[in-house]
Simulated assay, not measured.
Amino acid sequence: MENLYIYQDEFDNECTFLRKKYYEHICAMITDFFEEPLPDNEFYRNFLDVLNTLEDYHDVYYLTTEMPFYWAICIIENRRTNHHLIKNKTNDDFREWYIKYKKENDIVRFIIEGINEETYVFNNDNGGESIFLRKKYYELVCILVTDFFKKPLEYNAMNATLIGNLNALFADGKRKDISTFVDREPYYWAMSIIEDKETTNVLNEKELEGYAEFIEDFYKNNEIKSFVIPE
């Protein structure tokens, strides 16, 4: 089984499915959480076949729209099942095990996605519409990490949170929906990704001077003046 499956999602963005980690997670759930031997039954073989023959994002969504413990129970019972949990396990038991497993195996999410759409149209405070350049905003945060702060860009919990928040903006949203981005300096997100937590740090006076110059160069190179453009 190949470790990664790279595919185009419904927005034509390149995504990465951590296929082998997903498989290992389900196997560990069977053997470690439910304390059952890993069976070699028909459902297990069919599930493995789906993992090995993914063709597009529909196949990935077929696997990941179900909770992993559902597939684990189906494999144990060798059938589609209505059981939520088995062997007197509770949601709290699972949550505790899952948090520990993710930490020990360095997992944030099983799908690494990008920004779905370049722009986001929202209703501004003047009764009209404006455009938020969300993809450009994310690009700036990334290069702040790598070029301004000189740190490696990691796909950690804060990076995943930023991508998820940018993708989840409401289609009929208002100005307040983008306030966490445009009312907060982008360096906040960059520093949060570096620290993998909501940062409490701020730039000193000298760093702010370099930051302002960095932002100005980014705007100039991308031929924009702001991340919000009135229509």
Rank of each mutant, 00 (worst) to 15 (best):
I73W: 09
V202S: 08
C27M: 14
L140Q: 00
E213G: 04
Y211T: 05
W97P: 15
P152N: 04
E77N: 08
G210S: 02
I99L: 12
D9E: 06
I131W: 07
T161G: 03
W97N: 15
K87N: 13
F17D: 06
I194P: 00
V50K: 15
E117V: 14
L162Q: 06
G164D: 14
E129K: 11
H58P: 03
I178H: 02
Y188N: 07
L38V: 14
Y137S: 01
G210Q: 02
R134W: 03
A160Y: 11
A160T: 05
F17R: 06
N201A: 02
Y137C: 01
K100D: 15
N78V: 07
E209S: 04
N201L: 01
E96S: 15
N124K: 08
F69K: 12
N222W: 02
T161H: 06
Y61C: 09
E10G: 06
D177Y: 11
L166G: 02
R45M: 09
E223A: 12
E195K: 00
E42C: 08
W189H: 07
D32K: 11
D172N: 13
L203I: 01
D59T: 05
N116L: 09
D49T: 13
G114P: 03
I30F: 13
K220L: 05
E96G: 11
E198K: 06
T81M: 12
Y22M: 11
N116M: 06
I143V: 13
M29H: 08
I76S: 05
I99M: 12
N46E: 15
N156D: 00
Y211L: 04
N165M: 12
L54H: 07
D56T: 02
L63P: 08
C15I: 04
F34C: 12
E36R: 09
L144I: 08
I107G: 03
Y98H: 14
R45S: 09
F47Q: 07
Y5S: 08
F149I: 00
P68V: 10
Y70H: 14
D125W: 06
